[in-house]
Amino acid sequence: MKKVTTFLLLGIVVGVIVGLFAKKEQTLTHSPKKFQKELQASVPRPNISLKEIKKVVTNSEATKEELLDITIAGQDYDEQDPHSFKAIQAQKQGAFKVIALKRLIETEKNIEGKLQTLNHVIMTAKDPTIQRVAQSYRESLKNGRSFFRDFKQAVGNLPIPN
């Protein structure tokens, strides 16, 4: 009897773990066809708050659709002073969009999918800076290079001013 109970309990635990993983798979993977349809139908929002961006970008289970939504949204920025609190917040907001873009592209398994998604971002992103990042990212990918690694190395190669 004790053995049966142990076996049943073990079965339940395994079942829960498998279920959790299955749920995670469901949220993180998508049918490429379905995503392509959604990609074409996606409409960029004129602006989006930093709070909302943070919520999605820091969520490990954010879907591709959510990441795309963040990436192509406009900037919630109306500040003139470059040294202001709002300007730095806007910079953070842009940085989170870059992370969203990077995550979005990394979820694509093949180069065609990556390029297609980048093309879409270039054409639809409300934030012109994100469009430019996506253009440079696309060029790197076409040349079989890692955009982020090359960017860091290139900036690292700039001399420090005397």
Partner: peptide, 14 residues
């Protein structure tokens, strides 16, 4: 590092 990398990229292109 992930955050500052993204900040650097956004600032460079903005």
């Amino acid at each position: 590092k992930a955050m500052v990398e993204a900040e650097a990229v956004y600032m460079a292109f903005n």
